[in-house]
Nucleic acid binder design. Sequence first.
DNA 1: TCGCTTTACTTAGAGTGTCTAAGGAGAGCT
DNA 2: AGCTCTCCTTAGACACTCTAAGTAAAGCGA
Lengths: 106, 106
Amino acid sequence: MTTLLHGTLELLVLKLLEDEPMNGYAIGVRIQGLTDDALRVEEGSLYPALYRMERRGWLRANWQATENNRRAKYYRLTPTGKKQLHQEQERWGTFSTAVAKILRSS
Amino acid sequence: MTTLLHGTLELLVLKLLEDEPMNGYAIGVRIQGLTDDALRVEEGSLYPALYRMERRGWLRANWQATENNRRAKYYRLTPTGKKQLHQEQERWGTFSTAVAKILRSS
DNA sequence: TCGCTTTACTTAGAGTGTCTAAGGAGAGCT
DNA sequence: AGCTCTCCTTAGACACTCTAAGTAAAGCGA
């Protein structure tokens, strides 16, 4: 069962971090919540994605305490990350409309 | 550069074959045409995808001559393939609206 | 006739990203 | 003390697309 998420996860993470810094766990919960459980991102996908994005300079992280008094790594967008977000948003736009064109064809 | 196509190619192929049997080459050309060149599927992706789908019983193939007097493998949907198409169409629908929800969030 | 482009298929291997699975650790509740 | 929940980490399996290279026949122009 191939996941459609492939290549889209980074876009989603960038988008969520545009509004406010968040930790990985919260990002996962948020994705599930915003999509009414339609999308569930596994930890083994999410955390490596965050590391990748940090390595590429899209995110910056710092350890902080959560509201629940737990330590967590908070990620925030860098300027490069913001550019990347816009780029990927556009990429998604053209891709999804392309798919729509084919699905509407016939 | 991760491709967004990941996991969607089979849906597109199923959809195109719903209307009429086609050969691999034509499918590739058609995808490009319908999407105004937004989507280009490489042969190294398309043909293996066709083999996969045939192996799974979604497609059936037979060699035929094209209009240009060339031999080509024509694929057609099986009943199982038709079911699969509807399933994947639905999967794509919920996925893309889920992504849209997140992109609209904030 | 020769060479080039186009049509059409095949397949090995690299690359990349998601998932499964397992583990650790601290906070708070009963 | 035990349990659940939060939160992170990482190894390895798996799946798919892509790059790249090859084959081969048809048709066209010089």
